[in-house]
């Protein structure tokens, strides 16, 4: 039988050794992990304008296609800034008038401009996020990408499949009168020819609702900017 003294010393030494080991491992691996997260973000942004890239070339592709990064205010004003480094989660916590939301402007090979809006919202078990891009009419969806932290595989997690995301292409966010209606995920399937609706995921209702909320809230923020931009485009 060991004495109490021995047990105490043993525990203390054990905990210290484990703590040091873990700190070293985490410090060594951190740059790799951060690079992974960065690359993933780049790949996600590119996917939202329907450009698939692998890990190696993504950095260069990003430089090639993304022409401008802007920070947008709710009233429609904007300034140049590093949109890439904005933490959407933190920005959404701020009061709506103080937010400066990121916007990426891309130019695809055919010379057309596309506007990429990052998204952040809540699913069933955790965060969901994504990127949605619009054509230069600032109404028609060009591409979309969604991802999630911990949605149920086979159910809510299906939002990260291309099959779900491709449904969004060519949907419109404004109705004929120019009011913002967003794109809805419709339970039981969107009626044929619905320009604002896509099919929800069966068994993934709460995640689908999360996608609805996320689109409405995030894209809604840019409506003023889109309207101003449309007006200037028309005058030109």
């Amino acid at each position: 039988m060991h004495s109490n003294r021995y047990i105490f010393i043993y525990s203390v030494v054990m905990v210290v050794v484990v703590a040091i080991t873990l700190s070293i491992v985490v410090l060594i691996l951190k740059p790799f992990q951060e690079a992974n997260i960065r690359t993933e973000k780049i790949q996600n942004i590119l996917t939202s304008i329907n450009i698939q890239s692998n890990k190696k070339e993504s950095q260069d592709m990003y430089k090639k296609y993304i022409k401008e990064e802007l920070l947008i205010k709710n009233d429609g004003t904007y300034r140049q800034g590093s949109a890439f480094d904005v933490k959407l989660k933190d920005e959404l916590k701020k009061d709506i008038s103080k937010r400066e939301m990121p916007l990426f402007i891309a130019e695809t090979d055919d010379g057309k401009r596309h506007y990429i809006v990052p998204l952040w919202g809540r699913g069933l078990w955790g965060a969901i996020w994504g990127y949605i891009s619009f054509n230069d009419d600032l109404n028609t969806v060009f591409g979309a990408l969604f991802d999630h932290k911990s949605e149920t595989p086979g159910l809510g997690a299906e939002i990260s499949t291309r099959a779900f995301q491709e449904q969004f292409i060519n949907k419109k966010i404004f109705d004929d009168n120019g009011n913002f209606v967003s794109v809805h995920v419709i339970k039981g399937g969107a009626p044929k020819g619905d320009i604002h609706g896509v099919d929800a995921i069966s068994g993934g209702t709460i995640t689908s609702n999360g996608v609805n909320m996320m689109l409405k809230e995030n894209v809604g923020f840019y409506v003023n900017y889109f309207k101003t931009l449309k007006n200037t485009n028309n005058h030109e």
Binding site: H2, I7, S11
Partner: peptide, 25 residues
């Protein structure tokens, strides 16, 4: 020490799991 052996095992297992998790990430 046999009185805290389960705790010691748990700490070792947790250490290994965190290392594996960090490597996967």
């Amino acid at each position: 020490p046999s009185r805290i052996r389960i705790i010691v095992q748990l700490v070792v297992v947790a250490l290994m799991v965190i290392i594996v998790d960090q490597f996967l990430k």
